[in-house]
Write a protein that binds this DNA or RNA. Structure first.
Lengths: 252, 252
DNA sequence: GGCGACTGTTGACTTGAGTCAAAGGAGCAA
DNA sequence: TTGCTCCTTTGACTCAAGTCAACAGTCGCC
């Protein structure tokens, strides 16, 4: 189905950073990504690390469960989902990743990837070879600390997903999902009240622990209430304040 | 069942490691905890780090949401739960921690703790001051790597909880919970088919995204089926294989 | 050693989300 | 453009889990 661990650059997939404008120090995402909080003057220490990039076409996987873990990936452009599959055939989307976010931490523990990472649109990632990353982090405290912060943030994010899955009703989940996505787009400098969903209703449902019909009904209801406007994947948030109230509607 | 932490209780709460047999190199939990995978001959490097211990009485908190993050904690004896609370008053138990497991990673990102950690029985933890931990990890690659492995394992654990919350029915969740606990006790060298639950039905329910009545009914049903024997908090697993089947009963 | 407050069990009823089904719409490929 | 596939919406029905309530058991504390 997918390439068997390509250590050798395969046609059109790997780009050397050298010929391009190159790495972190000039990247517009640097504040959101690995370099966050590291003084710009010191970023050249990272530039050697992220010399490689890779393109992933819509529908293709960046890595699969069981693949040898060799690197973390920073999303440069595009949109990903990560998916866990259990031995008895269940699956669950564990997250969606937008530019500036990192993929692959779940692989450190076992040296094998623990999720599938799938591009939901044509995407590009920076490759951060993990051994090198650890080596540089040993000599360069700000990178070490930032790496820990990013992993910790992922743990907090998952706590919040657990709270959502464990305590919220269907419409509350959908409202929380829309607000979260909106917030992340705002953070990236995109419009936060009008965007194209990159995923299907079924994928939203999988992430939120709901069936696709339930997601669809929630969208329809919010639209009736004038809170959002939804035409297929095109979403406009009309009343963010009301959407916030919908998240905490469980009492009152 | 377990040693009653001997020695001198200094001011009741903090114990200096010096006077005790001391830290990681002689700890019976070392393979399960931070020192895992680090050669015993090098463990003295850790012993300086974990010089302090702390006792926490049943019902007391080790730390609360919002507390300044200064250290990670390794459970030495006892049992903890961690709990997240949202601004609108929901709460959710995000995990239970047994000896050898670490608490506090969620605090690295913001330098404030993101959950409450509450002892479910009288417990003792080793204090790992975080700044020192990072400093030592910079000079000592095996520790650095182990630290990353442990954080990564926590991320994987949470993925699996998301799968449980997102895809499993009530009885499947309860069966999965019992098997998970059993496995962790086995790993610690305790009986894996007979143990005392340290948490209430309500706490199990909070962790599993269920109401306490639903948890209780699942226990009763498993008992009727002869799969477990449950008398209040005393649990005996009679048929582990059947319990495994109950986890994946969703099809067939 | 007994009282009171948690904790757990069980039953009856309600309800929110899942299931099944049908049909319309969007997007891609030839 | 046509046709095909996949995605989305909506309706009718079902059922798993939540809610409410009563009561029993247990534990810890005075």
């Amino acid at each position: 189905m997918e390439k068997k661990l390509a250590s050798t650059p395969i046609s059109g997939k790997l780009l050397s950073g050298g010929s391009l404008a190159a790495a972190c120090s000039t990247c517009s995402l640097r504040e959101l990504c690995v370099p966050g909080g590291i003084p710009v003057s010191e970023l050249e220490k990272l530039d050697a690390l992220v010399a490689m990039r890779r393109r992933v076409k819509r529908g293709d996987t960046l890595f699969n469960v069981g693949d040898e873990f060799r690197a973390l990936y920073a999303v440069r452009s595009g949109f990903f989902k990560t998916r866990i599959t259990s031995s008895d055939g269940r699956d669950q989307i564990t997250g969606f990743q937008v530019p500036g976010e990192l993929l692959g931490f779940e692989g450190v523990a076992t040296e094998q990837h623990g999720v599938d990472a799938i591009a939901l649109e044509d995407s590009e990632v920076c490759i951060l070879p993990y051994g090198e990353l650890e080596r540089i982090a040993r000599d360069f405290q700000p990178l070490q600390h930032q790496l820990h912060r990013v992993m910790s943030r992922e743990i907090m994010r998952e706590h919040n997903v657990m709270l959502l899955l464990g305590t919220m009703k269907a419409e509350e989940r959908v409202a929380a999902f829309l607000l979260n996505l909106s917030e992340r787009y705002r953070h990236l400098g995109y419009s936060s009240n009008e965007f194209i969903l990159r995923m299907t209703r079924q994928e939203i449902g999988s992430y939120l622990g709901l069936k696709l019909e339930t997601v669809s009904r929630a969208f329809s209801k919010f639209q009736e209430q004038g809170v959002i406007e939804a035409q297929g994947k095109k979403i406009r948030l009309l009343d963010i304040e009301q959407l916030r109230k919908l998240v905490s509607s469980h009492k009152g």
